[in-house]
Structure formats: structure tokens, C-alpha cells
Design a binder for these strands. Sequence first.
DNA 1: GAGACTGCACGTACGGTGTACGTATGTCAA
DNA 2: TTGACATACGTACACCGTACGTGCAGTCTC
Lengths: 215, 215
Amino acid sequence: MPTEPLSRGRIVAAAIDLIEREGADAVSMRRIAAELGVGVMSLYNHVPSKDALLDGVAEAVLSEIEFTDEPGAHWTDRVRMQARAFRQIAHHYPRSTMLVVSRQLHSTAGLLPVERALATLRSAGFDGADAVRMLRMFIAYIVGSLLREVGVTPSFAPVHPRTIEAEGVDPALFPEVSSLAPLLDECDHEAEFEFGLELLIQAAVAHASRREGTR
Amino acid sequence: MPTEPLSRGRIVAAAIDLIEREGADAVSMRRIAAELGVGVMSLYNHVPSKDALLDGVAEAVLSEIEFTDEPGAHWTDRVRMQARAFRQIAHHYPRSTMLVVSRQLHSTAGLLPVERALATLRSAGFDGADAVRMLRMFIAYIVGSLLREVGVTPSFAPVHPRTIEAEGVDPALFPEVSSLAPLLDECDHEAEFEFGLELLIQAAVAHASRREGTR
DNA sequence: GAGACTGCACGTACGGTGTACGTATGTCAA
DNA sequence: TTGACATACGTACACCGTACGTGCAGTCTC
């Protein structure tokens, strides 16, 4: 049985699989090679370095985002949908998402989402400068949300998110924190994300109408 | 001449110094020990592990944020000031900031900012749940902005932020991206941050008055 | 003082890492 | 047949985090 020949795609896939199963710390060239039943150095025939491999992982994850754009919809709905699509990767690839956000990729993989987003914002009436600013604001919010959502979960952290709030804090020093501890402890990421997203969209609407007024 | 005795503080300081000078990749226990003119294992008398050391770095950086709160000011001004104070770390410790945002620290070092922020939001009239949501939204935005600002700058990346936009993109496939390339290439982080911050604050104001109206 | 105990600096050693380099084995072109 | 070339592999090196043992300086108890 001729084993499927090694390829960059198979290597990247194995890396993603390994990251999701055992965390980013478990990723090493030796480990990936073992996973593929292959010698370590064989990987280097398809990938120039580990760093490039991780770039490939980020690229692959990013390119799986499903953008189902509806050009007919109101621009606020389109922004909403694009933001949600972006957040989806945190569900499909929670561990790998850290890689995506913590490496600025210098490939063109992230260009299509940018193109779509800019087109949407332009169609909403924003000029170029404002569209870019808006996009950056949304990206900052989305990335920040992802970061909270996936944490870092170094390896096998017992997903329990540490109820440090509820126990060790001095109510005299931190009255607000300790009184709001139950709320701080729990976090419905979905709901939190939607809350901020709606506020941002409304802020964008307000900004748009303000520009409209001064025109 | 009795050299100053080793201590956790000196080790953390050396680590921060090294990170800022040569990047996070350069940090190793051996390197830090050499920097301090000391044996590698001596470090372990003051720090239980490298991971704990990095937690210490994050904690130290975070605790240097200067919060000059003015309880008399309008709450929007107080939010503005607190957000800016947070962003300052990106200027003082650009490389170390990556550590702060990419590790969720389980110490109480980040609790004081949280306390201040919650108090401010409560004073603005938000109930507990809304205050927590607002805080999370602001944090997401701030962290996301920091992440864009500091990138990852792996080691000695020649700070030139890659004018990939202006050169290699096909105008037919990415019309918006290529027409807005000049705007996408440059980025005044200060101005971008302020733009989003103002929008968020206005969104918060709108949300507050909306709640006011439904009361 | 003598002895014991403690804390800190240190060296050695082990298993792991990324990857440079040389080598073997195929599969095609001439 | 004879190369040329792509690919898989093994060895080797420098570096990593850190477990463990050793020795020395001080400090406390009799």
C-alpha cells in the first residue's frame, strides 16, 4: 500500500489536528512527523521551517471562514454576519485561533475578508479613510473577543476558568469586584460578543448619520 | 564587592529588559542567568519555573500602569483616561505587551484596573450586568488594538510593516483593498485607537440613555 | 565555642527542541 | 543505460527547561 505522499497540505492538517487535540505546546516537528508516520526531516521537503508551518496553519484556519455574503441585505446585517463568521473560528479551532491572532501573517490569506468588509463599509457610505478606521475598530474588537474566549489554555488546563474572583478577594479593597464576582466568573461568550457587536454597529450607524449631517 | 543578592524582582526585571531588547524568542533561563552573571539553576531558588517567571513579567508590566483617576470628572472622561492608561504599556513595553495579552494571568495584579473600571461604570448608572458587559467590550477593544500595535515582532523584524498591500494585489480581485492600499499601509496607532475609543464611548452613552428611557 | 540546620549558588545530566548536512532510493528523460 | 532530480531518511549540533546533588555561608541552639 503506497502511503499517500507527504505534502504541505497533509502536514498543515496534521499540525492543526495536533494543536486542537493537545494544545499549541505539543507541536514540534518530531511530534508531527510521528503523527504522520514519517521521518522528521522529510517535513522539510515541503515546509521551509517550523515558523512557516505555523504561518500555514494560520492561513488554513483563516481560509476556512465561511463568508455567506448577501449583497442585498442592509449593510448593518452584512457587517453582523461577517463579524460572526470571523468569530466562528473560535468554535471550530479554539486552540489554533491563538496562533491566528498572535502572528501577523504576511500572506494574502486574510485579504478576502478585508476586501469584503471594505466593500460593505463603502456601500454604507463611508469614505475610504472612515471605512479603514471602521474596519480596524471592528477587527480590534473581534480579535480581543477571540482572545478572551480562547484564553491560552496552555495544554490541559482543567477548563475550569478559575473562580478567583469569588474567593480570594478582599471586599474592602475591591468592593465592586467582589460584589460582582458571580457576573465576572461566568461568561457567555456568545452573548458577550453579540452585546459588544451590537453596540459597535450602532456606534457605526451614529457615525455614519453624523457624517451625513455635516455633508 | 558583594554583588546584590539574586531576587525574584531582579530576575523579572532582567527578563523584561531582555524581552524589550531582543524579543520574546530570546528569553531563556540560560540567557537571563548570563545577563545577571549567575548560574542557570540559581534562578530556580527564586522562581519556580519559566512559566511562573513570565507570569511575573506580565504582572510587573501590568502593575506599572499609571491610573490617575479623577473621581470628580465625568464618567466618559474617566473611561477615556483609563483606556489610555492601559494603552500606554504598548509604548513603554511594546514586546512584553504580547506576553500580557497572550497569557491570562491568574494573579490579582489585574484586579485593580478592573475595580476602578467597574466603579466608574457603576457611577455612570449601569447596573452590575451592564457594567461587566461594558467592561468586557472595552477590554476586548483595547486588547485587540494593542495586538495590532505591537504585532508580534518575532525578533528583529525590520520594523517596516510590509507594504504587501501596495504591490502584490490584483486590483481586479481586490478592488477595494488595492484602491485603499495607501490607507491600509500606514497606521497612526494613536489616532486609530482614539477613533475607536470615541465611538465606543458614544455607544456606551447611547446605551446608558436608552436604559434610562426604558426605566 | 561546637554542632546542626538552613538557604542559596552552582555544576552536571537528561530528555526534548529546530534544523543543517549527507545519504539512499525511487522515478522520469535522454 | 545513464544520468538528473525529487523525495525520504538518519545523524549531529547547539540550545532548551529543569531534576538532582554538592558545597559554602550564615544563623540558631546547646
